[in-house]
Write a protein that binds this DNA or RNA. Structure first.
Lengths: 113, 113
DNA sequence: TCCTTGGATCGATCAATGTCGAAACAGATT
DNA sequence: AATCTGTTTCGACATTGATCGATCCAAGGA
């Protein structure tokens, strides 16, 4: 059951949100996932296209394949991306809703006050 | 010298950004800073007002003052907030530009495709 | 001057994380 | 079935990070 991302709480940005402990916990997981240079680049590479084969990602880093796989799992567990196996290869794509929820949380900070 | 946050690279969001290793490094520091529930709540509390006295923050957490101070330092080092001492008390305020840069990086992911 | 109070820093401890190589797993090909 | 290739999982290790108590510093008040 792909949980529905019930993050309606992110309606008004950090500034307007008292941000319950639960929400803070959930959002922090996502921010933490993006809080690593490798994962941030991975996320950018995936977001740049509809979907990306892992086999196209690993060559772009000087890290063991298992390490890249680990980082992809962190992004997956955070709900930021999803994966799908087709034949031999595995393809990753972003979950736009998740990234957008984080964006909304940050955006209006200096906006309408 | 409050460094000028030269993050013009964040013009087009994750999707459009090849995201150089350097940029990834810089942004990751900020995301990582927000990647802790305590710090995320601190950031929200600070963003909710023009400025906030540390003395108003510490009572809202069941943590040692030194721990809160440490988390504030992480937010400060990431460039997300700034502090100013006035007499006995220290006041924190957000750096809207920094938060906004992160927001822009995330926002347009699912936007115009 | 000496205490008190608000904050930051330091040093120590324990948990979490990044990294790797080895092994396991899933499909495809022979 | 045997094997090859792409991907993930599994220990293991070194590094980082969260937390605390103790200490230090700055500003006020006795």
């Amino acid at each position: 059951m792909a949980r529905e991302l019930q993050i309606a709480d992110a309606c008004c940005g950090l500034a307007a949100t008292p941000l319950s402990e639960d929400d803070a916990e959930r959002f922090a997981v996502m921010f933490k996932a993006l809080g690593d240079p490798i994962r941030l680049r991975l996320a950018a590479l995936i977001a740049a296209q509809d979907e990306v084969c892992v086999c196209d990602l690993t060559p772009q880093f000087e890290l063991a394949d298992s390490t890249i796989s680990h980082h992809l799992k962190v992004l997956r567990d955070a709900g930021l991306v999803g994966s799908q196996r087709r034949g031999t290869w595995v393809y990753y794509r972003v979950h736009p809703d998740a990234l957008q929820a984080l964006g909304v949380l940050l955006q209006p900070v200096g906006g309408a006050d």
